[in-house]
């Protein structure tokens, strides 16, 4: 990620959860999948939905709505799974929809997320304002810290 900072723009995937738009760097994203059968794994945290067969690799799935403490939603046609890799971990995030890939100018990123004041505040690394949209940049490290132990 450091190499990206040198550039003027960061390429990011934008997705929707409830009424907000979030963004994660393209470099962490492996792919975006349509919803498929999720096998429940017992005795895990509530936001861990289970595992899927991602082309032969068993991949755990996290429901981001539940992770952020947002109200649950039915999985619909536009629901997507964003496959992310970080620190040798491969995890899929269930999101309402994946909208866009955009270049975010580094200067437009602000560090103080004063605007947002909910449970997900820990997971936010910054916000970016582009035209009329407010994008919330996610701190993947924190999202993936499992509180299992």
């Amino acid at each position: 990620m450091t190499s990206l900072v040198d550039q003027d723009y960061i390429k990011m995937i934008v997705f929707q959860l409830a009424d907000k738009e979030y963004a994660i760097p393209v470099s962490n994203v492996q792919g975006i999948e349509k919803l498929m059968h999720i096998t429940r794994v017992p005795k895990t945290l509530n936001y861990v939905k289970g595992v899927i067969n991602l082309r032969g690799v068993v991949t755990p799935i996290i429901d981001l709505r539940e992770r952020f403490g947002l109200p649950k939603a039915e999985y619909i046609d536009s629901t997507r799974i964003i496959i992310c890799t970080l620190n040798n971990m491969e995890v899929g995030f269930v999101v309402d929809s994946a909208n866009d890939v955009i270049d975010i100018p580094v200067i437009s990123i602000e560090n103080q997320p004063n605007v947002v004041g909910s449970a997900e505040v820990d997971f936010i690394s910054g916000v970016a304002k582009i035209e009329n949209r407010l994008l919330i940049l996610l701190h993947l490290d924190k999202v993936l810290v499992s509180e299992n132990n």
Binding site: V48, V51, N53, V58, N149
Partner: peptide, 19 residues
């Protein structure tokens, strides 16, 4: 035999997964 990956570790009574 497949592993559950690095994210899900130490799941009680589950040693792995298969497809």
């Amino acid at each position: 035999l497949k592993s559950l990956g690095n994210y899900l570790t130490n799941i009680f009574a589950i040693s792995g997964a298969t497809i």
